[in-house]
Write a protein that binds this DNA or RNA. Structure first.
Length: 272
DNA sequence: CCCCAGGCACAGA
DNA sequence: TCTGTGCATGGG
């Protein structure tokens, strides 16, 4: 499947900190595991991406996953024509970013793991968790490398704490176990959170052990596609303080704060 | 060896 | 409600 879009850059998305299972395999080529599927993405041109999957699978999964119906160019245009010089530069720099629609449970567990870890360490831990608790993905594209889906809530809820610890989770092992159990025994219904407003979503998610405001925001944005809310991590906090002297007005970007946050994060973290 | 990482729970004020 | 602190582990 060949996708044409002025705002679809797989390198930028892979390095945007929102997903942890998208990896460079060649120049202009990335692998991605999501929804128990494996695909290879190739950046053919600045506005063309080849996805190695059937049209049926594209329509069913990836069109939605990459949020391809949404017009990011409109936002980029508004920022590059606007008064804010930092966001102007950030939007130009990260104009191929999109907010992915990832699996809520995977986001919950992944961002619990993310606390107090850097991104390479997060990715390593997640891969170990998938190898140990995920099911094997059958796809010839994997090229002989055993590839595993993200674990189901049931598989993690039934794990032993000391086995979880072996995957490098550290003190987060109990957070993972208890959160998975909360999903399985329906103390929380992640898919139902899609329809609630941001305050309600945050209230429910932060009840989970090991889930604070930051992690909840990431689950909300990347797993439930609440693009109106913006996670504030150390990088965004740095932007708000150093660039805006803590006077940034999120209300200017009501409804799309999560997307604005993504341009900020990617620019601050990656540009030299 | 050092410091820090897309934070959190918990204790004490 | 706010601030400080310990936390397991690995990358740089």
């Amino acid at each position: 499947m060949l996708i044409q879009s002025p705002n679809f850059n797989i390198q930028q998305i892979a390095d945007s900190g929102q997903c942890f299972r998208m990896n460079k395999i060649n120049e202009n080529q990335y692998s991605l595991i999501a929804y128990s599927k494996y695909i290879v993405l190739t950046q053919i041109d600045s506005d063309k991406v080849e996805i190695n999957c059937s049209e049926e699978e594209f329509e069913e999964v990836w069109k939605d996953y990459f949020d391809l119906e949404y017009n990011y160019q409109q936002i980029v245009d508004n920022l590059t024509n606007g008064q804010d010089t930092f966001l102007k530069a950030a939007a130009e720099y990260g104009n191929g970013l999109r907010i992915l629609k990832q699996e809520p449970f995977e986001m919950l567990i992944s961002f619990i793991i993310s606390q107090n870890k850097n991104i390479p360490a997060i990715k390593r831990t997640i891969e170990k968790l998938c190898i140990k608790y995920g099911s094997l993905i059958e796809n010839e594209l994997c090229g002989g490398i055993e590839t595993y889906a993200f674990p189901t809530p049931e598989s993690l809820a039934g794990a032993r704490l000391e086995d979880l610890r072996e995957t490098g989770l550290g003190y987060r092992d109990a957070y993972i176990l208890r959160s998975a159990q909360s999903v399985v025994n329906r103390e929380i219904d992640l898919t139902k959170l899609r329809t609630l407003n941001t305050d309600e979503v945050m209230k429910h998610l932060t009840k989970l052990h090991g889930v604070g405001v930051k992690v909840a925001n990431c689950v909300s944005l990347y797993g439930l596609h609440h693009i109106e809310n913006a996670p504030v991590d150390v990088w965004i906090a740095r932007v708000l303080k150093e660039i805006y002297q803590n006077k940034f007005d999120w209300k200017k970007y009501e409804g799309i704060a999560g997307i604005i946050q993504q341009y900020m994060f990617y620019y601050m973290r990656n540009h030299t």
